[in-house]
Design a protein around this nucleic acid. Structure first.
Length: 391
RNA sequence: GCAGGGAUGGUAGAGCGGUCAAUUACACCUGACUGUAAAUCAGGCGCCUUUCGGCUACGUAGGUUCGAAUCCUACUCCCUGCA
């Protein structure tokens, strides 16, 4: 069986629906990966995630290495068993932490020297170490350690970054072959994906994509985006990368994004996405709701808006957060109640809000798949956007 | 009735002669949040003004003083103890 099966390609864009066959089951694409950095999607159980239609989740090498340690997870029988998530798991390499924990790290040829934020001990995260840890975690999709410089994008720095990422990729592959193919890993079916860097410079993106393709990865992630750049820059980065990656390979867009970003990126050929937005913003009281908008010619089009449930105006609003939503929150509780939970600091507030936002994102992916399948994805791309000022 | 304590911005509660439009917390409002060091962070919060600045304010009314939320007097109300 092919690793990635394309079911339907959109006629008007590079979007497609498909299935990634992993060692722990299938992923229907385009897909959104809820983020469970430390082995848990904050406040949500594995069972709930599965029930809502999440096929795959993302966890993080850096955090799990630090605590509880990959050796412990290996002993537990791998991350799947440890957290009792039976579906596919995608692990980030720790490359992002290289960027986000910038104050305490030093990037060199060998890897990243840094201090753990919890106990201050100094460690080196190398391409090999990242692969080793991910092998111990037993994820289904592992990522190579990459380097990217953040925003604003600078050509010379980005050029160095794709070169270093390429050299690290070669080392990561050798380590992967040693452990996962020739060794006795937790998950023999684990796949290693490459990462394309190059900011929004087309020539660098092209070069980086070609570098990765030459190394023969099973899938590709597009990294270095969602670091503060405008939406157009992000799309430019995507458009400059995908043409040089195999049509037949699954493509992940790292760290993206808003519902709008995701629809736009899916149209440009991205198959999977991960982002903290739905979970983090839920904890901050920001909820995503479906919202239709009327155009000047009286046409109703789909969109969405966000509301801050903590505002006083919802104090006596006994309607549901989103009456087009089928999540537990919307089926059972009012805005007034959720606001009250936030106001009083009840932990349930976080759970309910997170449930809702995740369901919103998972529903969005279902809408995208359906639109591609039934050939109206072009309309969706044209219309789907955030409705501002209508909260 | 006597004695003592107190009345401060939406609320609680600091301040106790100038540096006070007034600490702080809560509430409220704005804005962030994109491979999670984030149940977090930043800002605003008397009125007018873009800034400078001006005006009105700390129970009420007077007074002392160059200057008062801060001191004095009277009044109103509240609390506590004794009758």
């Amino acid at each position: 069986m092919q690793y990635f099966e394309i079911l339907k390609s959109d006629s008007g864009s590079k979007a497609r629906t498909g299935v990634i066959h992993t060692a722990h089951g299938d992923v229907q694409t385009p897909a959104f990966l809820p983020i469970g950095t430390k082995g848990a999607v904050k406040s949500i159980t594995s069972e709930e995630l599965k029930f809502w239609g999440a096929d795959i989740i993302l966890a993080n090498t850096y955090h799990l290495w630090q605590r509880p340690g990959d050796a412990l997870i290996y002993k537990a029988g791998g991350l799947h068993k440890f957290m009792n998530w039976k579906g596919p798991i995608f692990t980030d390499s720790g490359g992002f932490q290289v960027f986000s924990l910038a104050k305490m790290r030093k990037v060199g040829e060998g890897g990243v020297v840094f201090q753990f934020d919890l106990d201050g001990r100094t460690e080196i995260l190398s391409p090999e170490k990242s692969v080793d840890i991910q092998a111990n975690l037993g994820s289904d999709i592992a990522l190579i350690l990459d380097d990217f410089p953040g925003y604003p994008f600078e050509y010379e720095r980005s050029k160095e970054s794709i070169a270093l990422t390429k050299r690290w990729a070669e080392r990561a592959i050798r380590e992967y072959q040693k452990i996962v193919i020739d060794g006795d890993p937790i998950n023999p079916g684990q796949k290693l994906w490459g990462i394309v860097q190059g900011a929004s410079f087309p020539d660098l993106r092209e070069q980086s994509a070609k570098d990765m393709v030459a190394l023969g990865f099973d899938g590709f992630a597009i990294g270095g985006v969602a670091v503060g750049e405008p939406h157009k820059e992000m799309m430019k980065a995507v458009e400059s990368s995908t043409p040089f990656l195999p049509e037949s390979a699954p493509k992940h867009l790292l760290g993206v994004g808003t519902p709008f970003d995701i629809v736009q990126a899916a149209a440009r050929g991205c198959d999977t996405f991960d982002c903290v937005i739905p979970t983090r913003e839920a904890r901050h009281g920001r909820l995503y709701v479906n919202q239709r908008q009327e155009t000047s010619d009286k046409k109703q089009i789909d969109g969405y808006a966000t509301i801050d449930i903590r505002l006083e105006k919802y104090k006596e609003d006994f309607t549901s957060v989103d009456n087009n939503c089928d999540c537990y929150l919307c089926l059972n509780h009012s805005k007034s109640y959720l606001r009250h939970l936030f106001a009083t600091g009840e932990p349930l507030s976080i759970r309910l809000a997170t449930m809702h936002n995740l369901k919103f994102y998972l529903n969005l992916m279902q809408k995208i798949r359906t639109a591609i399948q039934y050939d109206y994805f072009g309309d969706m791309v044209r219309n789907y956007q955030e409705v501002v000022g209508s909260k």
